[in-house]
Design a protein around this nucleic acid. Structure first.
Lengths: 221, 221
DNA sequence: GTCTATATAATGATAGAC
DNA sequence: GTCTATCATTATATAGAC
């Protein structure tokens, strides 16, 4: 019973043309970015004519907006679903949100780089749900943090999104597609290990901090 | 004595047209990505005609290759220079390389997302220099790592590159341009704090690891 | 070395038939 | 709802003058 690609359990062939176009656009935007993705390419991937894309969505920009809005809606739906099933009270809202965005993290990351205004709001929301987690981790440490929680939460999220953004290079170096089940598992294990161990001793960090004041910071492009 | 933008100490006006075009291209590629950047825009930014761009570089693709090669060369030059001055044996080769790439991290990150083959090699080199650092940190921990060094080094680099990649969103959330001197300093402090403290207790990490086996991994786009 | 003018290709937008 | 055909725009590539 190999059924090809599906969306929410439904084989793509069974979706309305409108939904197929939207899903094809999501894939193409994720893979190539908004600019490089073409209406013709999206139409071909969806198995329809370019004219039908225009009929349903008006313009390329409006198509992007529709995909953005739909992805956001799906993430919120998934989040609510996971929170409802609520088995994993383990790590609080952060892990729920991470699990909810997982199927869309590639699209999300790319849309953020492509400066999609609708998706931009999601970054702020991710920072919001990450903050309590940082606060919780702060309770376990001796020395006081040198920068505020929100800053660290924001930096941490930018870093986490680097993984799907550089998936091609990660996959090449690791020798496994990071979007495959095995690759995804490997990344998750690596992240857990990274998150649960300090890479720098407090002393080294302090000395590096001291060196920061001495060094010549160069604004960069 | 405000002298406008410079390259290696030389005011841009004093550079040859060829060099000005190359620098303008680097800025435009960093800002807009390869696809969205136009030869016309680059020529205008360099203060020359589009025809001259073609005269010096042949095609847009060749221009990209030239910029890539030049950035790589500059990074290696900077790295050698820093290694020679060698005051900061503090943090090993990793921090040295970070310092070398700092002025170009924006270009680097964007070029990696844009799948530039020449820059792709730099990602592998970053992983190479990061591995010893991971090994060094491993010596300080009690429990054995659950994934190999190279995997963690690769993931860590992908994460670090997330910062310049999402600079626009980071800057918005933090309220300061992360490419400005103050912003750069704030990010550096945040990274040092993040790198020197565990965010997850070993127990929590273990329980999350256990949950990984139970959960349903979804391949993502 | 540098510019202007033009050719060509790709793409988004549009109109109209079925 | 869906397709085919066409237009308009934009960007790259090219040729040739100065």
């Amino acid at each position: 019973m190999s059924v090809g690609r599906t969306f929410r359990g439904t084989p793509l062939d069974d979706l309305t043309a409108r939904a197929r176009i939207r899903e094809a656009a999501r894939e193409q935007f994720t893979e190539h970015g908004f600019e490089r993705a073409t209406i013709r390419g999206i139409a071909a991937a969806a198995g329809v004519s370019p004219g039908l894309v225009r009929h349903h969505f008006g313009s390329k920009q409006e198509l992007r907006d529709a995909v953005d809005a739909h992805v956001l809606q799906e993430i919120h739906r998934l989040g609510a679903e996971i929170a409802r099933d609520g088995d994993r009270g383990d790590l609080g809202p952060s892990i729920v949100s991470r699990t909810a965005i997982r199927p869309y993290q590639g699209y999300l990351a790319r849309a953020l780089v492509d400066r999609s205004p609708i998706i931009a709001t999601m970054f702020d929301q991710l920072v919001d749900v990450t903050e309590p987690w940082i606060a919780w981790a702060d309770a376990d440490r001796g020395d006081p943090p040198v920068v505020d929680r929100r800053t660290r939460a924001a930096v941490l999220n930018a870093m986490a999104l680097g993984v799907p953004l550089l998936h091609a290079h990660l996959s090449r170096v690791l020798g496994v597609d990071v979007f495959s089940p095995e690759g995804d598992r490997l990344i998750a294990l690596a992240l857990l290990d990274l998150y649960s161990h300090a890479l720098l001793s407090p002393e080294l960090a302090a000395s590096a901090r001291a060196g920061l004041e001495a060094g010549t910071p160069e604004p960069a492009g």
